[in-house]
């Protein structure tokens, strides 16, 4: 069980050494370095502009929460980060996104590599109609892992990481869709972790779950802090406040989503610079 990552210098080899033992938090995010830099990102669906001129940095090892009312482009923003926007009909992205040294918007970029490094969790858990084991095994095999022993080790590893191992170890071969909602969401997280991503994008991961399951998943996200860079979209302000290091507030203006304010989570909630942010976090608007 070893965790070998120093706070400041994090290169890709260091990232890969997190494969042993149950999940442990990495170092707290105290000296943040931007891992993803977004500059002037705009996003259009046909003639409709969903998001305009968003610029922000996602800091390595930190949890960044995006808050704001429905329809202000938070989910679209997440999809732009792993180029899932390619799959959305009529969607056009402009602006710059840099991830490590990659230009995310480069049309020649191998999106498969990008998406392996930037995992995504959806609002509704999406277990594939396969067994629990196969859910994790399938993407691993697709990315070139062939030896069954190795695959089994990873399956056990990630299921332990998300605290699901004890619950499902006796039914790895039964359908994943028979699991409860919270278990399904944790399975999806495990499936994403199996690919050893650097970043996890989470699109309201708790909103489809009951309060207890939601609490379990929230604890899990907290434990991902440090080892993974997490960007989480949430409607739940209290949750954002509890878990995030950074927060960004988006709001609709002239039918277009804009980033109103971005900063340390505490600052956004306790001393917002913008009046809109203040009224939103205090529950007066939105």
């Amino acid at each position: 069980m070893k965790v070998s990552m120093d706070d400041t210098d994090k290169n890709s080899e260091a990232q890969q050494s997190y494969t042993l033992g149950p999940l442990q938090s990495g170092p707290h995010c105290c000296d943040p370095r931007p891992l993803i830099s977004v500059t002037d990102l705009s996003l259009h669906y046909g003639a409709k502009t969903a998001l305009e001129n968003v610029s922000l940095d996602i800091y390595q090892g930190c949890i960044t929460a995006l808050i704001g009312p429905s329809g202000c482009g938070k989910t679209s923003f997440l999809s732009a980060l792993n180029r899932l926007t390619d799959m959305l009909p009529g969607c056009h992205v402009s602006g710059r996104i840099r991830f490590n040294d990659l230009d995310v918007c480069d049309p020649d970029l191998d999106v498969r590599l990008l998406r392996r490094d930037i995992g995504m969790i959806f609002q509704k858990p999406v277990p594939f109609p396969l067994s629990v084991r196969r859910n994790i095994e399938l993407p691993l095999r697709e990315h070139g892992m062939r030896r069954q022993a190795e695959i089994d080790a990873v399956v056990q590893q990630v299921l332990q990481d998300v605290g699901l191992w004890d619950e499902v170890k006796d039914r790895l071969n039964s359908p994943a869709q028979a699991l409860s909602g919270g278990q399904q969401q944790r399975l999806c997280i495990a499936r994403a972790l199996a690919l050893q991503p650097k970043v996890l994008l989470m699109d309201e991961p708790c909103s489809a779950l009951d309060p207890i399951a939601s609490g379990v998943v929230e604890d899990l996200i907290l434990r991902l802090q440090g080892r993974y860079t997490v960007v989480i979209v949430t409607h739940n302000l209290a949750q954002a406040r509890r878990i995030a290091n950074y927060a960004g507030f988006l709001w609709m203006r002239e039918r277009t989503g804009r980033l109103i304010e971005f900063g340390q989570c505490r600052q956004i909630f306790e001393a917002p610079a913008h009046a809109l942010t203040a009224s939103y976090v205090n529950g007066e608007r939105g």
Partner: peptide, 25 residues
């Protein structure tokens, strides 16, 4: 469900793989 396509893409699977393992079944 479209979610299968998105989730498979988000895991870096090719469209062909998503088709073979998820959509066709």
């Amino acid at each position: 469900p479209d979610e299968y396509r998105l989730a498979a893409a988000a895991l870096g699977m090719t469209r062909g793989a998503a088709l073979l393992h998820l959509l066709l079944p």
